[in-house]
């Protein structure tokens, strides 16, 4: 595996910290007038999403993380794993629940997802930023109720539950922002 010297540190570089793959968010060079220089690094743990801070002596070498992002099409869930296909070469792969995280709530099939691999194993999956899903269960719509900010829960076809305005009805198609899990609007498609 490649190693990187602190001189090569930059935003987006993938390195191993505490045995986990991390992506550098910020790299600061700190040097006292007469003495040892350090690189203070802010990095995101690609497994947990957590941001951590680490310090290295300048010139130290750190193991790189073999991390690759691919746009793959979601095929199906077999009850245990989620299956994806590369549309370029028809290769398939499967992600487990850990890698899926919240993405599992937003996809039903055929969506293009960003799958991040670490050592050729899916590490995380990001659903498209916006998805359109049908409401399968919610309380009857209250026409004419214009109370600002009032909301109710609605269950979507994937099983996810989101907060929606009171006028939303069973069978409506909703646009959802998967990054926040928030209702955006009703839509015709």
């Amino acid at each position: 595996m490649a190693t990187y010297s602190t001189n090569e540190f930059k935003q987006g570089l993938k390195i191993i910290i505490d045995n986990d793959p991390c992506s550098i968010i910020e790299n600061n060079f700190v040097k006292p007038g007469k003495g040892q220089a350090f690189n203070r690094v802010k990095a995101r743990n690609l497994k947990t999403g957590r941001v951590l801070e680490k310090t290295y002596k300048s010139g130290e070498s750190v193991a790189g993380a073999d991390v690759v992002d691919l746009d793959l099409q979601y095929l199906y869930h077999d009850g245990d794993l989620w299956h994806f296909m590369n549309k370029d070469n028809y290769e398939q792969c499967a992600a487990d629940g850990n890698a899926m995280g919240d993405a599992r709530h937003w996809i039903k099939g055929e969506e293009m997802c960003l799958v991040t691999f670490w050592n050729d194993v899916p590490l995380s999956v990001a659903a498209p930023n916006f998805v359109v899903l049908q409401v399968t269960e919610t309380d009857p719509g209250l026409k004419g109720d214009t109370a600002q900010g009032a909301s109710k829960p609605a269950t979507l076809e994937t099983g996810a539950v989101v907060k929606v305005p009171l006028f939303v009805e069973h069978g409506d198609l909703l646009k959802i922002d998967t990054r926040t899990g928030a209702y955006v609007s009703r839509t015709k498609e």
Binding site: V30, G35, Q36, F38, R40, E53, T55, E60
Partner: peptide, 18 residues
């Protein structure tokens, strides 16, 4: 946040100071 600090006094003082 400097995990690999061991026995280099000068470097450690530099780190804490800066």
């Amino acid at each position: 946040g400097w995990d690999t600090a061991v026995d280099d006094r000068h470097a450690m003082l530099d780190f804490i100071f800066s």
